[in-house]
C-alpha cells in the first residue's frame, strides 16, 4: 500500500547510502583526539590489567607473610619489588589486590547509583507536575545531609561489611545523577521532536524508549564517569578512617592508612599505595573531563 506511488522510481534509488556520523561518533572522535583523556584510558587499562591478572602472576599472596622477609624495603633481589610490611606480606601483591577492591567498589557503587539515579530522575522528569516536585524535594532533603556520616553510621552499627559498603555508597551517590537525568528529561520533553512524535500518534513507551532515553546517554555517561573517582576517593577515605574495607582484605585506603602510621620508618608502605591511588584518580579524572568535553564541546 505504501508502495503505491513509490514503486515506479524505486529502481533508481540506491539503498546502500553512505553512513552518516552520529553525535555519539562525533563525541568519540573528539574523545580520541584528546591526549589527556587517552592517557587516562591507557593508565586505567594498565591498572585494571595489573589489578585483575597481576596478583596471580606473583609468587606472593596478599595475606600470607614471607617468613624470611619482614619490613624489607623495595628491592629486586628479594623479589619484593615494593618491599614488605611489618607482617612480612608482599606490598606489591597487597597493592594490586587493594586496587582490585577499590575498583570493584567503584564499579558496583557507580552501577547502583546510575540505576537508582536514572530511574528516579527519568520518572520525575517524565511525570512532571506535583509528583516531580515531591520527588525532587526528597532529593533536596537528602542532598542537604552529609551522606558520608550516614555511611559511617551504617558501618558502625551494622558492622563492616564490604558489600554493605558498596550498596551504601551507591545508594547515597545517586542524588546528583537523579538531578541531572531529571533536568535532561524535562528539557528533552519540551523539544519539538517529542511533540512531533506525539503529533504523529506515537505511544508513550515508544516516545520514552525511542526519543528520550537515547538522548540521555550522553549526560549519563559523562556523569557516571565523574562519579567513579568520587567513589574511589570516598571508599579510600572510609577505609582510611577504619570504616571501610577491613583486614585481612585490603584496599588502597586501608593500605595508605597503615602506611601513614609508619611513614617515617617505612616510607614505601605509604608511597606505593598512594602512587596507585593518585594514578587511578588522575586517570579517572582525565577520562571524565575528556568525556564531558567530547559530548559538550565548549570553550573550557
Amino acid at each position: 500500500m505504501i508502495g503505491r506511488s513509490y514503486r515506479e522510481n524505486a529502481a533508481d534509488i540506491d539503498l546502500t547510502a553512505p553512513k552518516g556520523r552520529s553525535l555519539k561518533q562525533d563525541a568519540l572522535r573528539r574523545f580520541r583526539n584528546n591526549k589527556a583523556a587517552m592517557t587516562g584510558v591507557v593508565l586505567l587499562i594498565l591498572l585494571i590489567l595489573a589489578a585483575s591478572v597481576g596478583p596471580s602472576l606473583l609468587p606472593f599472596n596478599y595475606e600470607d607473610p614471607d617468613w624470611s622477609a619482614f619490613r624489607v624495603p623495595p628491592s629486586i633481589e628479594s623479589g619484593h619489588y615494593f618491599g614488605t610490611d611489618q607482617n612480612g606480606r608482599d606490598l606489591l601483591a597487597r597493592t594490586l589486590y587493594g586496587t582490585r577492591i577499590s575498583l570493584a567498589v567503584a564499579l558496583v557503587a557507580t552501577l547502583v547509583s546510575v540505576v537508582i539515579g536514572v530511574t528516579f530522575g527519568a520518572f520525575a522528569g517524565y511525570l512532571g507536575g506535583r509528583i516531580d516536585q515531591a520527588m525532587m524535594r526528597f532529593v533536596d532533603i537528602i542532598y542537604a545531609l552529609p551522606y558520608i556520616l550516614f555511611v559511617i553510621l551504617l558501618m558502625v552499627i551494622f558492622g563492616r561489611n564490604v558489600f554493605l559498603l558498596f550498596a551504601a555508597i551507591g545508594a547515597l551517590e545517586w542524588l546528583t545523577m537523579a538531578r541531572i537525568v531529571r533536568g535532561q528529561t524535562l528539557s528533552i520533553r519540551q523539544r519539538e521532536y517529542i511533540e512531533a512524535a506525539r503529533a504523529s500518534g506515537q505511544s508513550t513507551p515508544a516516545i520514552i524508549f525511542r526519543h528520550i532515553i537515547p538522548n540521555l546517554v550522553g549526560p549519563v555517561v559523562i556523569y557516571a564517569a565523574l562519579t567513579v573517582p568520587e567513589i574511589v576517593a570516598t571508599e579510600s577515605f572510609l577505609s582510611y578512617l577504619g570504616f571501610g574495607v577491613q583486614e585481612p582484605l585490603t584496599s588502597l585506603g586501608t593500605l595508605i592508612a597503615s602506611g601513614a602510621n609508619v611513614f617515617e620508618v617505612m616510607p614505601w608502605l605509604l608511597w606505593f599505595p598512594a602512587g596507585f591511588l593518585v594514578t587511578l584518580l588522575l586517570s579517572l579524572l582525565f577520562i571524565g573531563d575528556g568525556l564531558r568535553d567530547a559530548f559538550d564541546p565548549k570553550d573550557h
Binding site: S236, F237, Y240, F263, V278, L282
Partner: peptide
C-alpha cells in the same frame, strides 16, 4: 582534586 586529605597531610 587527586590528592585526598589523608594523603596530603602526611
Amino acid at each position: 582534586l587527586i590528592l585526598p586529605s589523608f594523603l596530603l597531610a602526611p
